[in-house]
C-alpha cells in the first residue's frame, strides 16, 4: 500500500465528510458541485486501488490475499455507489448518504493498510 496516497485519500474523505454532513445539517440537496466533488474523490480512490493492485504483482503479497482483494473491490465500488444513491435522493438525505460514504471509506483504506502490512512468505 502506498502510504502517502492512502493518507491523502483519508484526509480528503474526512474533509468531504465534514462538508457533506454540514450540507445535510443545513437541509441542502446535493448540488452539482457536491456530486462532482464525490466523482473526483471516487477517481482518487480508484487511483489508490489501481496502485494497490499493481503492487500485488511486484513484491510481497499480503498474507490474506483473498480478503485484501475483497476489500479492494468494495473500496473501488463504494464512492460510485454512494454517488448513484445520492443522485436518486435530491434532498438533504442525499448529502447524508455522501457524508456516510466518506466516513466509511477511510475505514476501508485503514483496513487495507492493516491487511497489506501483514505479508506472508
Amino acid at each position: 500500500m502506498n502510504g502517502a496516497l492512502s493518507t491523502v485519500t483519508i484526509v480528503a474523505a474526512l474533509v468531504l465528510a465534514a462538508w457533506y454532513l454540514l450540507r445535510a445539517a443545513l437541509d441542502r440537496a446535493p448540488s452539482r458541485f457536491d456530486l462532482l466533488a464525490m466523482a473526483v474523490f471516487g477517481a482518487l480512490v480508484t487511483v489508490l486501488v489501481v496502485v494497490a493492485v499493481v503492487g500485488l504483482f511486484d513484491g510481497s503479497r499480503p498474507q490474506e490475499t483473498g480478503t485484501f482483494a475483497g476489500y479492494l473491490i468494495t473500496t473501488v465500488g463504494f464512492a460510485p455507489t454512494a454517488l448513484v444513491l445520492a443522485k436518486m435522493e435530491p434532498t438533504r438525505w442525499g448529502n447524508l448518504i455522501l457524508g456516510i460514504g466518506c466516513l466509511i471509506l477511510p475505514v476501508l483504506v485503514l483496513r487495507l493498510q492493516q491487511i497489506a502490512s501483514v505479508t506472508g512468505a
Binding site: 436518486m88 435522493e89 438525505w93
Partner: peptide, 29 residues
C-alpha cells in the same frame, strides 16, 4: 420510500455485507 429510510438502509446494507463477507472468509479459511 423516504430519504432517511434510504440512508438507514445504506448503513444496514453495509453491515449486512461486511458481517457476511467477514464470516465467509473466516469460515472458509
Amino acid at each position: 420510500n423516504t430519504g432517511v429510510g434510504r440512508v438507514l438502509l445504506l448503513v444496514y446494507g453495509v453491515f449486512a455485507l461486511s458481517a457476511s463477507a467477514r464470516a465467509l472468509v473466516q469460515i472458509s479459511t
